[in-house]
Amino acid sequence: MSGGDIKLVGFLCNWCSYAGADMAGTSRMAQPAEMRIVRLPCTGRVNPLLVLKAFQEGADGVLVSGCHPGDCHYNEGNYYAHRRLELLSRMMAVYGIEPERFRYTWISASEGARWAETVTGFTETIRPLGRLNLAGGGARDDDHHQGPAAGSASPAEKR
C-alpha cells in the first residue's frame, strides 16, 4: 500500500459519487493516494458488515459516499442507507473504532471538487490516528488466503 502507512477504503455508488470521483480525475484535482475505491450500484448496497469487514481486514478508515438525498438513481436507496450508516457511525466507538475512521457523505456527479476535498480531509483526519490494527488479535483466517501465488510463475508453468 502506497502513500503512507494507512489504508482507506471508499464505497461509492456508481451514479453520483463514483462519477464525482471521475470528474475530480478528469479535472486533474490532486488527491492523497491512500484511498481505494470500490464501485457499487448504490449506497443501499453497502452492507454495514462490509464496512466492519473492511476494518477487520485492515482498513484504517472507511468512507461511504452516495447521491444526495432525493437524487438516488434508485429513488430510495440512499434513504435506507442513511439510516443504516448513521446507526453504524454511532456504533463505531462501541466497537472500539474511533468514530472519525468512518464517514458517510453525499456527493453528486457534478461535485468533483467536493470529492477531492472530501478525500483530502478524510485522509488528513486518519493520518494522525495511524493504523487501527483491529485485525491484530486473531490469526488470519486460513481459508482466506488467496493472495499472490508463490514466486512469479510463468504463464507456461501455470498452464
Binding site: 477487520q56 488479535g137 490469526a139 483466517d141 486460513d142 481459508d143
Partner: peptide
C-alpha cells in the same frame, strides 16, 4: 472465517 479466534 471458520477459525476459532478473537478476530472471527
Amino acid at each position: 472465517g471458520g477459525a476459532v479466534d478473537a478476530k472471527q
